[in-house]
Every structure is written in structure tokens, then in C-alpha cells.
């Protein structure tokens, strides 16, 4: 449940960053928020970089949306919301990868994905109305609630992050090949469909992670915008991937600070910083 932040800051923003950080980190919930936010930023950055390259942002959005019925179902069943997030996002990833094969026409693929998304939202609404719970139980999964992250959740996020990186470390290069040039990759023996399915599951996990910080509706701020910005800045894969992670961390930290001091919702803060950076990168390219 969301911790009310009103009056949480013991002292106002001071421009002395060290003091500010010391102040924020005197609260365990803020320490956890920074820990969770950093883990999520790195995972969402790396996975989002592949997602943007593969033009699968619509699929990513749908998987993030599936976290909402996941959280609602978990609340209804009385199990941990985190488990609900991951179970539903990964299940949606499997449905999308089976139903929308790569190579089918784009319109067909997006129709399948759109159907999954609508169904996920409908299920979420059903679960919430069955629960007859607070409004809060709807807004938290949709818009994020990272100030209520427990130690256990941080550990879960960390474990999922490790698993995600382990998978990407194994399939990274052939996945990149299949993403950029699937025909030739297939001729070279890369299992393009299998890579797509595995990547969607990884994307589902990353979307579920990011949902917990930014919320299912605003997950794009961490999955898409840092990667899109970095790919605008550089066409060198190593540079743009590194830059994606740096940008994701920066917008998350800046968002946490703003949310803490200004008491705006965290999802809004992160999204605004990410959007601002993206606009800057576009403007910069126009000028250059």
C-alpha cells in the first residue's frame, strides 16, 4: 500500500546534494525505493534497448498492462502482488509469442497483441470489482507505488534482474542478429522464432519489474524512452546500450528525488524526465 508522503521530507530541498541524499536515505522506504528503482532502471534499459530495436513497443506495452490484472488477481487471492505481476506478464508473453508469430503481417500481429491487451485490462477490472477494494488498489498497479517497496520485493527484483541478464548474456548476439536481419539470421541457423519467444518472456519480466516502480501505464518511461533517446544519439550498439542504462538510472533517480520533495506521483516524475530527455535528443539531432 502506498505510504503517504505528505510531510515526509524532514528538511526541504537544499541544493546540497549530499545533505539531500542523507536526508532521503534516513528513511528505510526511500533506501528501498532507490535500490528497487536502480535495479529496475538497469533491467528496463537493457531489455528496452532490444525492444526498441525490434520495434516491439506495442508488445511491451501490452505485457506491462498485464501486470495490472496480475496485481489485482494477487490481491484477490491474498498472495504477493509481485508474484501476480510476474505470473501475468510472463503468461501474456507466451500468449503473444505463440499467437503472433514474427513474419506474419504486421497488422495481424498487432491485432493479436491488441486483443491480449484489451482482455488483460478487462480481467484487471473484473478482479478489482470482485475485490471491492480501495481505489488505491487500482491506482497503485496502474501508476506505480514504489515508496511501498519491501526488502523482500527488492530481493525478488534483484533475482529477476540476474535471471534476465543471464538469459541475455547467452542469447544477446543471435538475438541482435535476428532483430536486425532475421532472414539472414534464419539462414545461418539462428532459431528466430525461439529467440522471439524467449525475448518476449524476458520483456514480460522486465515490464513487470518496471510496472512496480513506474506503474503499468507509465512503464514506457523506463522501457522505451531511455532506449529511444540513446539510439537517436548514437548508432554504435555498445554506446547506445550503455547510454540507455545511464539515462534510465538518471531519470529514475531524478524522478525519485522530485517525487520525494515535490510530492508528485513517482510515475509522473520519471516519465517527465524521460520525455524531456527524449525531446532534447530529437532537438539536438535536428540542430546537428
Amino acid at each position: 500500500m502506498t505510504v503517504m508522503l505528505a510531510g515526509a521530507a524532514s528538511s526541504p530541498w537544499s541544493w546540497n546534494l549530499i545533505d539531500d541524499v542523507r536526508d532521503m536515505w534516513s528513511y528505510p522506504f526511500m533506501v528501498n525505493a532507490f535500490r528497487a528503482g536502480s535495479i529496475v532502471a538497469v533491467v528496463a534499459g537493457v531489455v528496452g534497448w532490444f525492444m526498441v530495436l525490434r520495434k516491439q513497443t506495442f508488445a511491451g506495452h501490452t505485457l506491462a498492462i498485464s501486470a495490472f490484472p496480475g496485481a489485482a488477481a494477487a490481491t484477490l487471492l491474498g498472495v504477493s502482488a509481485t508474484a501476480g505481476y510476474f505470473a501475468f506478464a510472463v503468461a501474456a508473453a507466451i500468449v503473444v509469442s505463440v499467437a503472433a508469430r514474427p513474419g506474419t503481417r504486421f497488422s495481424e500481429e498487432s491485432a493479436v497483441i491488441g486483443t491480449v491487451q484489451a482482455f488483460a485490462l478487462a480481467c484487471g477490472y473484473l478482479f478489482v470489482s470482485l475485490y471491492k477494494g480501495f481505489l488505491n488498489s487500482v491506482t497503485a498497479p496502474l501508476f506505480g507505488s514504489s515508496f511501498a517497496i519491501t526488502n523482500d520485493q527488492v530481493v525478488t527484483l534483484g533475482l529477476v534482474a540476474v535471471a534476465t541478464f543471464a538469459v541475455l548474456a547467452v542469447i544477446g548476439r543471435p538475438l541482435f542478429f535476428a532483430s536486425v536481419d532475421s532472414d539472414v539470421a534464419a539462414a545461418r541457423g539462428v532459431q528466430v522464432r525461439l529467440h522471439n519467444a524467449v525475448f518476449l518472456v524476458v520483456l514480460g519480466a522486465a515490464a513487470a519489474e518496471a510496472s512496480q516502480i513506474a506503474g503499468a501505464l507509465l512503464v514506457f518511461s523506463l522501457l522505451v524512452m531511455p532506449a529511444a533517446t540513446a539510439q537517436l544519439v548514437s548508432a554504435k550498439p555498445a554506446v547506445s546500450l550503455g547510454l540507455t542504462v545511464v539515462l534510465a538510472l538518471l531519470v529514475t533517480w531524478a524522478g525519485l528525488v522530485l517525487a520525494y520533495y515535490a510530492l508528485y506521483p513517482l510515475g509522473f516524475c520519471i516519465s517527465s524526465f524521460a520525455f524531456g530527455l527524449y525531446l532534447l535528443a530529437r532537438a539536438g539531432r535536428r540542430v546537428a
Binding site: R173, P174, V180, L232, K236
Partner: peptide
Amino acid sequence: SSVRVRGVDVVRLGLDGDRWGFTLP
């Protein structure tokens, strides 16, 4: 035009793109 990958990267994929793992720069 939205593909933001250099020509050299595409050529490089022909060399070892099918191998497991990841490419260190």
C-alpha cells in the same frame, strides 16, 4: 530509416552473429 545500426555492425553480424553469447566492443 528508423534502423539505428551502422553498416559495419550489419556486416559484422555476418561474421559471428549466429554465435551464442554477446559481443564485447
